[in-house]
């Protein structure tokens, strides 16, 4: 039975042929964008958890644990430890093994990498218990007198720099999603207006047999719903395939952070909101355009 037939032959409009593909492209780009935003969120979360209030003291390779000068290393180590013990606000001090250093670098360095551990800097992880009494410049100066090669890295600084960068990436991704939805709204408004002109005779007859503007607008909305759903889900599936392809490609690289992200069910289910949003906004755009245009043409 033709319960869902349209009195208006909107399906035959030229726009009905290309619109689903434009919407598919929009859905594709928006889904990828949101995926990036979500990945960055996960990344930020990961880092916030990974580094609390710590500083790292880095002694360039070759200057600490060198086999030839183990006495020199012990001397520097003792001096560093001693300085740290005297510095106010410092908590636990831990010299990281090369295994631990690799683990920190883990998200970035392939698992089975055969990095020459002797090229790694030696790292001392220092927990800061009380920032208010701790003075970084003071410590820097004290360590400099031990060895000018020692570098002190405050996570707080570069972490916040990194967070700024990550957050901008996130904002840009969301802005892209918003722009794409606006573009979908604009496209629907434009094509609906064209259809209103093409079918003005039929619309006049519908009005004369007693159809309200709402009845006519509903037909356009239903049409937008079909195109929106079809197009944006095609885009969603294509973006899914792209991600899966990417995942397949980077699988060989064994970068655990990315692997986790891409196979995360929650990320996928959140991105499902994109086709739904696009479809919803297209329906609203059709409804509103038709109502306003009919009102204006009276």
């Amino acid at each position: 039975m033709t319960t869902h037939h349209l009195d208006l032959p909107l399906k035959a409009d030229p726009s009905s042929r290309f619109l689903p593909w434009i919407v598919a492209l929009m859905g594709y780009l928006a889904t990828l964008s949101l995926m990036i935003a979500l990945s960055v969120s996960t990344l930020i979360h990961h880092w916030n958890r990974g580094f609390q209030d710590h500083i790292t003291i880095q002694v360039p390779a070759g200057s600490l644990f060198e086999k030839e000068s183990s006495s020199a290393h012990t001397e520097i180590e003792v001096k560093v430890r001693h300085t740290l013990n005297r510095t106010a606000g410092v908590g636990t001090v831990k010299i990281l093994s090369s295994q631990e250093i690799l683990e920190i670098l883990n998200p970035w360095v392939p698992k089975e990498s055969s990095l020459e551990t002797s090229f790694l800097p030696q790292l001392i992880d220092v927990e800061i218990q009380n920032r208010r009494v701790f003075s970084l410049p003071h410590l820097r100066q004290a360590l400099h007198t031990i060895s000018p090669h020692i570098v002190v890295e405050d996570h707080l600084t570069w972490q916040s720099n990194f967070l700024d960068l990550a957050r901008s990436a996130q904002v840009i991704s969301f802005a892209i999603v918003t722009l794409i939805i606006l573009a979908a709204v604009g496209t629907v408004a434009f094509t609906s207006q064209t259809s209103l002109i093409i079918h003005r005779n039929i619309i006049e007859v519908l009005h004369l047999v007693g159809a309200t503007d709402a009845y006519i607008a509903k037909q356009f909305q239903m049409h937008a719903f079909r195109i929106g759903l079809k197009g944006s889900f095609i885009g969603f599936i294509l973006s899914g395939l792209t991600i899966l392809g990417l995942q397949f490609f980077i699988q060989d690289l064994h970068i655990p952070l990315l692997e986790n992200l891409l196979s995360s069910l929650s990320v996928w289910s959140i991105t499902l909101v994109i086709p739904c949003l696009i479809t919803l906004f297209m329906m609203l755009a059709a409804q509103l355009t038709v109502r306003l245009s009919l009102r204006a043409s009276v």
Binding site: T2, T3, L208, V209
Partner: peptide, 23 residues
């Protein structure tokens, strides 16, 4: 002023349908 793409039956049913009568 019959609607060209609708069947004779649908054309005649139209006034009832816009009133919300079931198809």
């Amino acid at each position: 002023r019959l609607i060209p793409h609708l069947t004779v039956l649908d054309n005649v049913a139209l006034p009832l349908q816009v009133r919300g009568v079931s198809p």
